[in-house]
Simulated scan of single mutants.
Amino acid sequence: MVKNIHGHTLDILGQAILSGRYAMGASLPPEPLLCEQLGVSRTVVREAIKSLIAKGLLITGPKLGTRVLSDEQWNWFDPDVIRWQAQAGLTPEFLRDLQELRLVVEPAAVRMAAEKANHEDIAEIEAAYQGMKNAIEQGGDYVVHDLRFHQGLLQASHNRMLVQMGKALSALLRTSFEISTRIKDGPRSSLPLHRAVLDAVIAQSPAKAERALMVLINGANDDIEQVLSSRRKLPGVAGSPTHLRKNSKVHA
């Protein structure tokens, strides 16, 4: 129960920061007022503040109070921070930062995967691909299998730091994949691109695997730019995952 209260309080404060209710550089209300507003004890507020400090959102100190840090100092690899940003509303800056990060990390990882992947790695990525295919043909959660595919590539690099980064990237990648899935014909058109990446890894061809992955990432970038150029409100991705309908013509 205490954990639930802590998590709920953390979510309220985190969402308030990411939405700009508590602006960067601004002070949070005094502790007694926060307790009154949130209906929780000082212990719960203090624990939530400690968590937000650890995530890089807040700083506290004598004569300083508790202030919101610049977003450059926020931990953008923290799943909670990503979730709060999605709930507050995606921004062009957030999405473009994500795409640039993918361009730095994933091509290097897939080259390593093509050199180092073993039978277990290939089987995992094949299973993810089949899950994507089934979601398109029979309906279901395409994104969870898409995410598993890309995590499998990072795992197959057998670089411990890249594998750890893959865990941190999960929430970020889910954001991108959810947007692509909502683009008309997104999943179905990207499926053969995923197959090309997997085939190149199986063939132990690093250069071919990297080229195929770049086509895939650039396609995702085009999807995001299409959404941004539409001038419509960016889609929210904080709720339930997008499920494809059976025989749906909508794919990503």
Results as ranks from 00 to 15, higher is better:
183 I>T: 11
183 I>H: 10
183 I>V: 15
184 K>M: 07
184 K>C: 02
184 K>P: 03
184 K>A: 09
184 K>E: 12
185 D>S: 11
185 D>C: 01
185 D>P: 00
185 D>I: 04
185 D>T: 06
186 G>A: 07
186 G>Q: 03
188 R>E: 05
188 R>F: 00
188 R>W: 01
188 R>M: 00
189 S>Y: 02
189 S>H: 04
189 S>M: 03
189 S>Q: 05
190 S>P: 00
190 S>H: 05
190 S>T: 07
190 S>A: 03
190 S>F: 02
190 S>M: 04
191 L>C: 10
191 L>D: 10
191 L>W: 14
191 L>M: 13
192 P>K: 10
192 P>S: 06
192 P>H: 08
193 L>M: 15
193 L>A: 13
194 H>V: 00
194 H>W: 01
195 R>M: 14
195 R>F: 11
195 R>V: 11
195 R>Q: 15
195 R>P: 06
195 R>I: 10
196 A>F: 00
196 A>E: 12
196 A>R: 13
196 A>M: 05
197 V>E: 08
197 V>A: 07
197 V>Y: 12
198 L>N: 08
198 L>F: 13
198 L>G: 11
198 L>A: 11
199 D>R: 05
199 D>K: 03
199 D>E: 14
199 D>A: 02
200 A>V: 03
200 A>G: 08
200 A>T: 04
200 A>W: 06
200 A>I: 05
200 A>E: 06
200 A>P: 10
201 V>D: 04
201 V>H: 04
203 A>V: 08
203 A>W: 08
203 A>Q: 14
203 A>S: 15
203 A>D: 15
204 Q>H: 15
204 Q>W: 07
205 S>M: 07
206 P>E: 06
206 P>Q: 08
207 A>N: 10
207 A>V: 11
208 K>N: 01
209 A>L: 12
209 A>C: 13
209 A>Q: 11
210 E>I: 01
210 E>P: 02
211 R>P: 00
211 R>A: 14
211 R>Y: 00
212 A>I: 02
212 A>K: 04
